[in-house]
């Protein structure tokens, strides 16, 4: 794989993302139409207490006296210029709010992705190596239980045990603001706050990847190329690590890409449980103030994030699997 071909592939994938983003924008517009009240009222935020003049101003700016298609065009143009309106509740532009709240969510998501894919693949690998022994049963049982547990409940139980009873970790927030930590102290403080939310969000996906990894490992072990490897005189260990592992990782990578959207959804729940100041927490607040425009902004930015992560996953996949043709 030469660098240039890969670059061309990435550019093409980015171009393919444009219609998807456009689709999300149109969907946001349709959802705004569905909301009670006219667009200006929704955009102003129902409990935002906007003045009548401001609403008039909005009506003019969004061309609400014009046909729906023109309104749509105006809306799409605004979104592509990253003008997502104003949130009275937060007295701030929606785009600023989103950028400000994005970092905590990315931190939580990134940690979760690494934790769940890494540990999930590892436990699936070991479950497959120890298949049908008590160790496999323990891993599989743990996975199937974690796979059935609602995220919010895991979060609350962890708070109950590790914060309320044991007092090891803080119950909420991302950092201890009154301490004014700086540098490494601050990083450590954030990490300390991150432990419970990251575990909560990881558990379900960890279970998912562990189960998938175990199943594909077992499936791959039955394939002919493994028999060939065995007939070459390789040890079971060499077969597992040199041959089966990489083949079995491919579906896990695919699944990780598919699950990014769900991961963001899960972070809404987890952030609201732990008062983690990210997009999810912002969404939770927007729900209660019935600030639909802000909610849609979060929806839009999440979709963009998913599209972007999917491209990253596709590139990783291309690097892992020589059979994928990058220049079609």
């Amino acid at each position: 794989m030469t660098g240039l071909r890969l670059l061309r592939y990435i550019v093409r994938r980015l171009l393919q993302a444009v219609p998807v983003i456009l689709g999300v924008t149109v969907l946001c517009f349709l959802l705004l139409q569905l909301a009670p009240g006219d667009l200006a009222e929704v955009l102003a935020g129902e409990s935002g207490g906007a003045s009548a003049e401001y609403i008039q101003d909005l009506r003019a700016r969004y061309g609400l006296d014009k046909p729906v298609l023109v309104q749509l065009a105006v809306y799409v143009r605004n979104v592509f210029l990253f003008d997502l309106g104003f949130s009275f509740r937060h007295s701030s532009k929606v785009s600023d709010l989103l950028l400000e709240r994005m970092m905590p969510t990315l931190l939580l998501m990134g940690t979760t992705l690494v934790l769940s894919v890494g540990l999930g693949a590892l436990s699936g690998l070991f479950a497959a190596i120890w298949v049908r022994t008590w160790r496999d049963h323990v891993i599989s049982l743990g996975a199937i239980i974690a796979y059935a547990t609602p995220l919010f409940w895991v979060g609350l139980m962890l708070i109950l045990v590790f914060s309320v009873w044991l007092d090891w970790f803080p119950t909420s927030g991302m950092e201890n603001v009154v301490m004014f930590y700086e540098g490494w102290d601050r990083a450590l403080d954030v990490a300390h706050h991150l432990v419970l939310p990251a575990i909560t969000l990881s558990l379900f996906y960890l279970a998912l990847y562990a189960r998938l990894m175990r199943a594909t490992m077992l499936e791959q072990r039955g394939l002919d190329y493994v028999t060939t490897a065995r007939a070459k005189g390789l040890t079971e260990r060499q077969i597992t690590f040199r041959h089966v592992l990489r083949n079995a990782l491919l579906p896990v990578v695919t699944m990780a890409g598919v699950q990014v959207g769900a991961l963001l959804g899960g972070s809404v729940v987890v952030e609201s449980v732990f008062a983690w100041p990210g997009l999810g927490q912002l969404a939770f607040e927007a729900l209660f103030s019935r600030d639909f425009n802000l909610l849609l902004g979060i929806f839009f930015i999440s979709a963009c994030l998913v599209v972007f992560v999917n491209i990253v996953v596709d590139v990783v996949y291309v690097l892992l699997d020589p059979r994928i043709k990058v220049d079609e």
């Binding site: 909301a35 959207g261 963001l264 959804g265 809404v268 909610l295 929806f299 999440s302 999917n310």
Partner: peptide, 19 residues
């Protein structure tokens, strides 16, 4: 498209807007 957009957030938006 429907698989790409974050489904749970979409569900939240839908329920919130549909009341």
């Amino acid at each position: 498209f429907f698989q790409t957009i974050p489904s749970f957030i979409f569900a939240i938006v839908l329920v919130a807007i549909l009341t």
